[in-house]
Design a protein around this nucleic acid. Structure first.
Length: 597
RNA sequence: GGGGUCGUAGUUCAGCCCGGUUAGAACGCCGGCCUGUCACGUCGGAAGUCGUGGGUUCAAAUCCCAUCGGCCCCGCCA
């Protein structure tokens, strides 16, 4: 309740300090503060108010005998009222220290207070106490954002972006904005479309990434470009996937993959140093795609723990175990994981894993527990001594170990065991360490075979350059061709990826044709890029990182929504504003749109 | 598109399996008392469309069906 009905939109005085920033060294100073009421403790006489701003909480003391007017106003305040306070910083007596608060050595003896705004009781407490339903948090996001955890997360995100900008500026990169209204590209993810009022029946698309534009900038002579770019993809959401997200987008002229990797390594050193004061060790590990798949069964391995895959096909040559023998006869493979004695798997765990494996990959799980007197488990009696010895040698088996095995086509077995490995990592808490295992994955295949569409599809995107050594393979063995592409993985999360691009018009056309575009279609869709490549386009390449995922790692959270100010729910709805919403029919008419439902 | 899980005061939850008084607790809220608290204490009070709709039953928060929404996952995400 403001003093007068004519409330003032201006504060009565300027702030001298942030509440949460005051310390014992400030004792004796007269200060002026603004903040929210975090708590009010009315002792009938003395009255305490915890005042909160973005830096934290400080205790205000109102004494009716010393200042009746201020005390009277303080009696009326409630949670989340916004106050302006003048007072003196006073050292607390030894008996009244609060070791829980950074400001606990002092308090503010209030002399003047004004209520700048009142508040309804907040629907949930503004602290980091018990978890509140996310739906409620998002509906009242402005209150959720006052919570210390969200304040911390968004400021870490800010520090990370600040560090990235400073670092790239220092390396002569130029920040350039590219359009949000751009051309639809029906391949890849689904586009968000924007109707054009002045071009009836035509649509812009929101960019899925500035890929083509940044390549065009290289042709345009900008040499080193970056942008914190907003990207849009109309696909189903996940804990780590939102319809709009930010990307650190980087492109440069004439780089070798090493140049990009070195640049990026330095960038992450800067980010971790400035945000968390953590020293990142260089250089990052590197694995080829093939090695990653062979050892970890995934192209984004979490290298904080072992449990690596082993090819056991050779050990089981000539086995009497029919499942394995048939597999080998078909040309399939057998891979295994050795689980050490300290990770005990109950029969129930093994059954659950087998079920999941069956339902997701359609593969069976074979397992054996290694005891002092031999193998135990359903397959033990089918496996002969020779195979046991060879398998034991191949993976280093000893009593107490459990051996998990999967047989099938190599392309399915390795990812399946890779999935199993991650489950084990989660089950035995191997993924919680805060060590930072950065790893580059290089030499990705250029193409993969799309079973559904019966054609080649790009593993990365169609503008990725093949490795020079594999150029000649393109015609006779395209699936064997490797790309000049690199992904950066941290603790099993893909932070970003990039490549050296194709800068030759003919090669670009050839790749597009290999992907199933006719020459005409290619020119219709990517004509401007092909044209640009025709005018002395320099060799170029770059990389892009998910800002939100980096922020997640820096904040130690599993949900993207905890590092974005205004995220959307799984149905891509914003519970606060109610977006998306219906629009006025007149708006639709102007846009030449009819909703048929 | 599919699978799982949750939905009960403002909030966090219990009750649901095994149907049966007036649907409970804590925090918060409102009022009284209280001069060193800091999640203040203390006394009292208000507060519920048990997500929604239908069904079974003498009787439904509880059982069944449908539907809506949150979250997690698969598909999808060049």
């Amino acid at each position: 309740m403001p003093k007068s009905e004519l409330y003032s939109p201006l504060p009565p005085w300027q702030r001298s300090d942030y509440c949460g920033a005051l310390r014992a060294g400030d004792a004796g100073r007269a200060v002026a503060l603004w903040g929210w009421v975090a708590a009010r403790r009315d002792h009938g006489g003395l009255l305490f108010v915890d005042l909160r701003d973005r830096e934290g909480i400080v205790q205000l003391l109102f004494n009716p005998e010393k200042n009746a007017a201020a005390h009277e106003i303080a009696r009326a305040v409630r949670a989340e009222f916004y106050l302006a306070v003048k007072g003196t910083v006073v050292k607390r007596s030894a008996a009244t220290l609060n070791a829980q608060l950074p400001t606990g050595e002092i308090e503010i003896v209030a002399s003047e207070v004004e209520i700048l705004n009142v508040s309804l009781p907040p629907p949930f407490p503004i602290d980091d106490g018990e978890a509140i339903a996310e739906e409620v948090r998002l509906k009242y996001r402005y209150l959720d954002l006052r919570r210390p955890a969200m304040q911390r997360n968004l400021r870490r995100r800010h520090l990370a972006l600040r560090a990235v900008r400073d670092y790239l500026d220092a390396h002569d990169f130029v920040e350039i904005e590219t359009p949000i209204l751009f051309k639809a590209t029906p391949e890849g993810a689904r586009d968000y479309l924007v109707p054009s009022r002045v071009n009836p029946g035509k649509f812009y698309a929101l960019p899925q990434s500035p890929q083509l534009l940044k390549q065009t900038l290289m042709v345009g002579g900008f040499d080193r470009y970056y942008q914190i770019a907003r990207c849009f993809r109309d696909e189903d959401l996940r804990a780590n996937r939102q319809p709009e997200f930010s990307q650190i987008d980087i492109e440069m002229t004439c780089p070798r993959p090493e140049d990009i990797m070195t640049l990026v390594e330095g960038m992450f050193v800067t980010v971790y140093d400035r945000v968390l004061n953590v020293k990142v060790t260089l250089p990052f590990a590197r694995l080829t795609y093939e090695e990653a798949m062979e050892r970890f069964g995934i192209d984004k391995p979490d290298m904080r723990f072992g449990l690596e895959l082993r090819d056991l096909s050779a050990a089981f040559t000539g086995t009497a175990f029919k499942v394995f023998a048939d597999a080998l006869a078909r040309g399939d493979v057998i891979y295994g994981i050795r689980v050490p004695p300290e990770m005990q798997l109950a029969r129930r765990d093994l059954d659950t894993m087998a079920e999941l494996l069956k339902s997701r990959q359609g593969l069976g799980l074979a397992w054996a527990k290694i005891a002092a007197d031999g193998w135990q488990g359903p397959i033990a009696k089918h496996v002969g001594d020779g195979e046991r010895r060879l398998a034991a040698e191949a993976v280093g088996l000893a009593p107490g170990h459990t051996l998990l095995m999967v047989a099938g086509p190599r392309g399915k077995v390795r990812p399946a065991l890779g999935e199993l490995r991650l489950q084990l990592g989660t089950k035995f808490n191997l993924r919680t360490s805060d060590e930072l295992r950065f790893v580059w994955i290089v030499e990705f295949p250029l193409f993969e075979y799309d079973e559904a569409a019966k054609r080649l599809s790009p593993v990365n995107h169609p503008f990725t350059a093949p490795m020079p050594a594999d150029l000649l393979r393109l015609d006779k063995e395209p699936l064997g061709a490797r790309a000049l592409a690199y992904d950066l993985v941290l603790n099993g999360e893909e932070l970003g990826g990039g490549s050296i691009r194709i800068h030759n018009r003919e090669l670009q056309l050839k790749i597009l044709e290999m992907l199933g575009y006719s020459r005409e279609e290619a020119i219709e869709r990517f004509g401007f890029l092909l044209d640009a490549l025709s005018y002395g386009a320099p060799p170029h390449g770059g990389i892009a990182f998910g800002v939100d995922r980096i922020a997640m790692m820096l904040c130690g959270t599993d949900s993207l929504r905890d590092v974005m100010a205004f995220p959307k729910t799984q149905k891509a709805i914003d519970p606060m504003s109610g977006a998306p919403s219906e629009v006025d029919p007149r708006q639709l008419k102007e846009l030449w749109i009819k909703v048929v439902s």
